[in-house]
Design a protein around this nucleic acid. Structure first.
Lengths: 342, 342
DNA sequence: CTGAAAGCGCTTACAG
DNA sequence: CTGAAAGCGCTTACAG
């Protein structure tokens, strides 16, 4: 498969290679006749410009990197969909990496994306361990935006929900329903978002005069199977919790699965609150009570801000982008009054 | 942010630019001392090779394109996860496009990916309308693999489930449970996979002596909302079906949502069968009966075969890759005996 | 073993 | 308006 070049087009159209290039770039001062002749040849040959060569000259690729924790989690999938579609409209393409929440994959992903000369990166779920690496990128003027996470770096760009408040709202809701034993199933505490949610949970309980029971807090990697079996064990205990706040809707579904496998009725026997508000949460067959992350807004904003950073990189020190979104409690079928004590 | 080049490294290390390049490429005949000096400078400077320039010379990008119908559908998300992770291991990166099942986006995605000079493309849900376009690519020797779909093109590469048989198995299962009014909610018939499922449904009913009732067949674009409202209307009818076969698990969830919104009990009032076997289908809280596509196998094979095609392009006319997978019925909680006639 | 040089396919200042 | 030429940052035959 011999690829065609602007040189080929030029030869056949009887003009110079630079003229072909100008036509391709909509350069205004070209004789109508010349332009049309070139266009005709391009059309006839089915010529497609080599964007790789173009990127080399223009020092930009019109590609961005999107690093996700796990795309099979609907939170990430829905995020990716919004970002990819909007990027496509803005003529950027998106190279997607899936880290499986492993730090070493994150490191590799960043290095490869830098090598591929992407114009910017959106990074989800960065752990604290990577503060230095991200700081270096950011200080070099490379456009990076942290999504649903943030790090303690001056002027770093991020968009994140107020996770502490989100957890507090969830606890309030359950307390209001009469629950007194509320478990918290969290992701790894190396993620600031996770850490803040656990803090919010503890603070809200303490503020309401409840003691913190460490047996009710499970901090695990994001693994469906681990959450599932932990929940099963937890629910078999005599003094089991009557409500569970999960780290995400995905994890809430694992909790619901575990409870169902024990023939527990939801919400009669157990109330469950998720985090994210994935689309499935509002499906009436499921009806998951959850803390909304306003994902559509968060992901669309993330993409647009990143593109802004890319396209205004050279201008007066662009103010850094730091956005906090308000959590919103979505009450549905998986939460109800605490079962009577017996 | 001034980027470093091999030229910079060479100057500082006191060697020629070509030597730096050779070190980068693990060229064997380099004096140990030279190699170490260069490596030290690379390390110290934090130099990263420009893969764009390299791609231009080597005429390959180590990127592949993945064109998906809708990544927020778990079928595509789970597919993407497997493909992206395996590609990453094989040192390829993946540019993901989301067509939203719109033909014009498919066309645009292919053109952009060709421009970006990806080494190959995995294409899901191609409609018949694109037979010519794909044929041209394929005939040009460009590696394309159709995933979960196929087209009538000689020697085209594809991996697909036996959709006709899958639909038949679903019908058999419901017939065996005593259902006589079985509805079929399908995607657009421009997709061969969808078309074959509808055919299989009709054939199995006919073979068992049932008439085809066109009012029970809904062929729509893949829109959650459309399926949802159609189902609601359908279930309100006096002579409503007692079972529904949905085009995908995602659509089955829309059907279940609609039924739940009408306070129907599953499976007592209505049996539902999906297609795909997404991970959520086996969650006990949901327990969706479905036809398994063996997605993990299908997606892993797809990626590996595409890479094979890419890396053996120049060799003796590589046999084309045409894989049919067997469907498998997964019986869970959403199907049960037909309600008594009254 | 190593350097100088050509070349990948474009863009764009420079000249006319 | 248009062409000839330099240059983007690499790889790799060619020479030594």
């Amino acid at each position: 498969m011999k690829r065609l070049t602007t040189e080929d087009v030029a030869r056949i159209a009887g003009v110079s290679q630079s003229t072909v290039s100008r036509v391709l770039n909509d350069y205004p001062y070209i004789k109508k006749h010349t332009r049309e002749k070139v266009l005709a040849v391009i059309e006839e040959l089915g010529f497609t410009r080599d964007e790789i060569a173009r990127s080399l000259v223009e020092k930009r690729t019109k590609s961005i990197g999107l690093i996700l924790g796990s795309i099979s989690n609907p939170f990430f999938a829905e995020t990716a969909e919004v970002i990819i579609e909007r990027a496509q409209q803005l003529k950027y393409d998106v190279i997607v990496y899936n880290t499986g929440h492993k730090d070493e994959n994150l490191e590799q992903a960043i290095n490869l994306l830098i090598g591929k000369r992407v114009d910017g990166i959106i990074l989800t779920s960065v752990s604290k361990n990577y503060t230095e690496k991200i700081k270096k990128l950011h200080d070099n003027g490379f456009p990076v935006l942290l999504y649903n996470s943030f790090l303690d770096i001056e002027d770093v760009n991020f968009i994140v929900m107020d996770n502490n408040k989100g957890a507090r709202v969830a606890v309030q809701h359950l307390l209001g329903l009469g629950h007194e034993k509320i478990a918290k199933i969290s992701g790894p505490s190396k993620y600031l978002a996770t850490y803040e949610r656990t803090m919010g949970y503890k603070q809200e309980l303490t503020d309401n005069g409840y003691a913190i029971d460490d047996d009710l807090i499970f901090s695990s990697e994001f693994s469906y199977d681990k959450i599932y079996s932990f929940t099963k064990k937890l629910l078999k205990k005599k003094d089991r919790p009557t409500a569970i706040i999960a780290a995400s809707d995905q994890m809430a579904l694992a909790v619901l699965g575990a409870a169902s496998s024990l023939d527990m009725k939801i919400p009669d026997d157990l109330s469950v609150v998720g985090f994210d508000n994935i689309r499935l949460a509002s499906n009436e067959f499921i009806g998951l009570t959850t803390i909304s992350q306003k994902m559509d807004e968060m992901s669309l904003t993330a993409l647009e801000k990143l593109i802004y950073l890319i396209e205004h990189k050279e201008e007066e020190a662009a103010a850094s982008i730091q956005i906090f979104l308000e959590p919103e409690l979505m009450i549905r079928r998986t939460t109800g009054p605490a079962p009577k004590q017996d």
